Simulated scan of single mutants.
Amino acid sequence: MSSNSRLNSVCAASMLISIGGQARPAQEWAAIHGVKWTTVKMRRYRGLDWDKAFKPQQQGRKPNYRCGTCGKICEPEGISLVA
């Protein structure tokens, strides 16, 4: 089995997924949930189940606040950075 066909079996755009008793292609469910298809595909490749892959926003990294003057991570006014 080629690597490409193995990945397609994990997450093919045309794969029918049933949610709430309604079956639609995976790519269509992504659009309904407001998630880019490439995001869903990457989440599936990383091992997430379909429910988690279709969630609009995953928990991301905390933003770094880089100072525009010195380029270091500085503490913006009103925000405390804890080391």
Rank of each mutant, 00 (worst) to 15 (best):
A13H: 00
C67Q: 06
R66Y: 10
R6D: 13
L81V: 11
G60Q: 10
R44T: 02
N4V: 13
K62Y: 03
D51H: 13
R61Q: 14
R46P: 01
L48A: 06
G68C: 05
S18Y: 04
G78S: 13
V35I: 06
S80H: 09
G60H: 07
N8R: 08
C11I: 03
Q57N: 13
A53S: 15
K55P: 00
T39K: 07
R6G: 05
Y65C: 05
F54S: 00
Y65F: 15
I32D: 11
Q22T: 09
W29N: 06
S9R: 08
C11N: 00
T69Q: 14
G68N: 11
A26V: 04
Q58P: 01
I17D: 01
Q57A: 12
K72I: 11
Q27M: 08
E77Q: 13
W50C: 00
G68H: 09
A30H: 02
G78A: 12
A13P: 03
S5T: 14
T69A: 09
V82C: 07
T38M: 05
C70S: 06
G60I: 01
F54R: 06
G21A: 04
N8H: 04
S3H: 12
L7H: 10
P56E: 14
Y65T: 09
A30S: 08
K62G: 06
I17A: 03
E77H: 12
R6M: 09
R24C: 05
T39W: 02
Y45I: 12
S2C: 08
T69K: 11
C67R: 01
L81E: 07
K62F: 03
A83L: 10
A53R: 01
R6N: 11
K72V: 13
G34R: 06
Q27D: 13
N4I: 14
A30K: 03
A13V: 03
C11E: 01
K62T: 13
E75M: 12
C74H: 11
S2R: 13
K36A: 14
Y45L: 11
C74M: 10
C67G: 04
A31K: 15
S2I: 03
I79K: 15
G20F: 04
I73M: 09
G60W: 00
G78W: 09
N64F: 12
P56T: 10
R6S: 11
Q59D: 10
D49N: 15
L7Q: 11
A30I: 00
G34L: 02
I32S: 06
H33E: 12
S5N: 07
S3I: 10
P76E: 08
P63I: 10
G68E: 01
M42H: 10
P25V: 02
E28A: 14
L48D: 12
A53K: 01
D51K: 14
A30R: 03
K55R: 15
K62N: 09
G21M: 04
L81T: 08
Q27S: 14
K41C: 05
A26W: 05
Q27G: 05
K55I: 14
K41G: 02
P63M: 04
